[in-house]
Amino acid sequence: MTARPTTYRSAAVIGTGTIALGWIALFAARGLEVRISSTRADARAHVTAALPLYAASLPDGPADPDELAARLVFAPDLAGAVAGVDVVQENAPEDLPLKQRLFAEVAAAAAPDALLLSSTSTLLPDDLGAGLDTPGRVLVGHPFNPPHIVPLVEVVAGRDTDPSTVGAAVEFYRWLGKTPVVLRRAVPGFVANRLQSALLRESIHLVREGVVTVDELDEVVTASIGSRWAVVGPFHAFHLGGGPGGLRHWLEHLGSGLERSWSLLGSPPVDRETVDTILAQADASFGAVPYEELAARRDRGQNAVIAAAARARED
């Protein structure tokens, strides 16, 4: 294994969608030269127009969009974007053949010690690297949206990935200020999105059945488990719910009812009626507010919650 850098100077970002824009802003804020590869003819104008929104909500405080833009290089082709960089972060659409072609090109042009990372939320690393001589070279570095703010990055390795490559990915994300979690086994959807999907399924069921509205459901979450989970995870929360006896007491006394309660959860169809119900309520609540305004509100709140939780852990 070729020795890897202890400092990082440059990174390539493939794509200019929402996730890619978050990485671009964060990488530039950390002082990296960011080479951008995009199929958009207006990539430069698109990124330049979007940068102020992301620059205003960086975890360490607002940055000057012009200073970030000065660190961006819009490469004429993919090979030029990845040649000589320390890290490649791919953000193409969730199309396996497309991503396989991209990583084949990337592996041929990038330095042998460059980290090859994918932001995919659905595809497994062994599939992404299947066309390479060394398939284990491709790792998943799945962020939680928005990636320039939310700390989590799920690191998923392939069967043949060298442990030192996993360690290098973890080191890079920590250097960025992220919280990387290495999955012990590659599973579809990874972890965070599986948890989110489970909650979304029951949320849709409850709204579809008329138990609550979209607004009320969101308020239930933000006023209860949302704020709780900002400081303790589910297992830790139920450990505290068990009193002095902890999780052991909670499971021994209430665990027998879990399967029964799970059987009562909904499994709603995502049919036309369901979609129309959800969208009508969402449109009435926040659908008319411009995306940029909603995103800015979310980002301010998210940064405030993360900062407050960090201060509480230090006390």
Rank of each mutant, 00 (worst) to 15 (best):
L53G: 05
V73I: 10
V170C: 06
A75E: 07
D95S: 13
W229E: 01
L72N: 02
P188A: 04
E154H: 06
E154P: 00
E252Q: 14
R201E: 01
E154K: 09
W23P: 00
A41R: 14
V13M: 12
K178H: 13
D77P: 06
D64C: 03
G241F: 06
G266D: 14
I19R: 01
L254M: 11
L96F: 06
G141C: 13
T39G: 09
D271W: 08
A295G: 00
S10V: 02
P147W: 10
H46V: 03
A69D: 11
H148S: 03
A108T: 03
L217F: 03
V34H: 13
S203N: 00
V181I: 15
D64H: 06
L247M: 14
A109W: 07
G257F: 08
T18P: 00
S203C: 12
V214K: 04
A11Q: 07
V155C: 05
P76G: 04
V106H: 02
L123N: 02
P268T: 03
G243L: 05
D95W: 09
T16A: 13
S261R: 15
P59G: 04
E273L: 11
A130G: 01
V166F: 10
N303S: 11
A237R: 06
W229Q: 01
I204T: 02
A168L: 06
L279P: 01
T6L: 09
D162Q: 07
W175N: 05
G189R: 11
W175V: 00
S267M: 09
K99S: 01
L264D: 07
Y291I: 06
N193R: 10
R208W: 04
D66H: 07
R313S: 11
I14T: 01
G255C: 10
L98H: 03
G189Y: 05
S57D: 14
S285T: 09
A49F: 04
V181K: 09
A41F: 07
D126P: 06
L32W: 10
W250D: 01
H148V: 00
Y8H: 04
L72F: 10
A284P: 03
S197Q: 10
L206D: 01
S119D: 08
T179G: 00
A63W: 08
D276M: 07
D276K: 12
L115G: 02
G287L: 09
D127Y: 02
A198S: 08
D77N: 12
S38N: 05
S164G: 08
A41Q: 11
D160V: 04
V34W: 14
G257Q: 10
A49E: 15
T277I: 11
A81R: 12
A186L: 08
G158R: 07
L264F: 02
T222D: 02
A114G: 00
L206V: 11
E154V: 05
L152V: 05
L21Y: 03
D126T: 04
S121N: 07
A63E: 12
R311A: 15
T277W: 06
A45R: 14
S164N: 01
L51C: 01
I306D: 09
D276E: 15
I149T: 03
V212I: 11
D215K: 13
R300E: 14
T213A: 08
P143Q: 12
S118G: 08
S267Y: 13
A43F: 08
F235D: 00
